[in-house]
Write a protein that binds this DNA or RNA. Sequence first.
DNA 1: GAAACACTGAAGCGATTACTTAACTATTGC
DNA 2: GCAATAGTTAAGTAATCGCTTCAGTGTTTC
Lengths: 114, 114
Amino acid sequence: MLQDSAQLDLMFQALADPARRHMVERLSRGSASVSQLAEPLAMSLSAVVQHLNVLEASGLVHTEKLGRVRTCRIEPKALRTAEHWINERRLNWEQRLDRLGAFLAETKDETEGN
Amino acid sequence: MLQDSAQLDLMFQALADPARRHMVERLSRGSASVSQLAEPLAMSLSAVVQHLNVLEASGLVHTEKLGRVRTCRIEPKALRTAEHWINERRLNWEQRLDRLGAFLAETKDETEGN
DNA sequence: GAAACACTGAAGCGATTACTTAACTATTGC
DNA sequence: GCAATAGTTAAGTAATCGCTTCAGTGTTTC
């Protein structure tokens, strides 16, 4: 696990493509083979494999080959990492706004002599 | 607001670059001018402006120009949209796993004659 | 063991990205 | 009004992306 900036690069890059998000969406409803992932997508199987490799390299998806079938599933820990990065920044900003609001309210009270 | 797949494309694409995440990180600690965003980054001001345009097009950052200074701030609603997409997929998968676990436990009980 | 199946890998190609430099436009301070 | 400041815009370039086709490689099925 890289766990650093490069890992986030790979994860967000992976999620930036609609075909790949479609695949994640599908996998969130249960494991699937490469062919099953490819079925609703308007592109060659080869293209799907390439997308899948991007997803796997990012850590968002784990795959395992049994016989001739590669079964794919979501890696929720990786999803949580991406989610967490965004959440931290958003909360940081929102808390800053809250503190500013509180400060302004307080200052106003004092100005009014309360 | 696009609110569709194209919007998510733009947001995740925007977050996929370390320089742009650095800028979002900086902005989560308070508004900043273009020059302030550029200061810690090892690239031309021009490059920073281009990154900023990507962030603004994605909706993650809002900017406003007063005089010659462009002030930038985070758009928490957009961050929440990206966060929400990931969260939904992860929860969906985790709940599936939970239900499967419950089903297996129940089946085991019945097999054991409880 | 031949045929069908489920992928896999390499090469190629047009579009997009992440920069650079250089020339430019407003605004502000003196 | 002249210089410094803050940012913008355009053009160019090397690298990467998202495909395609085509020629494989193992695996099952009959």
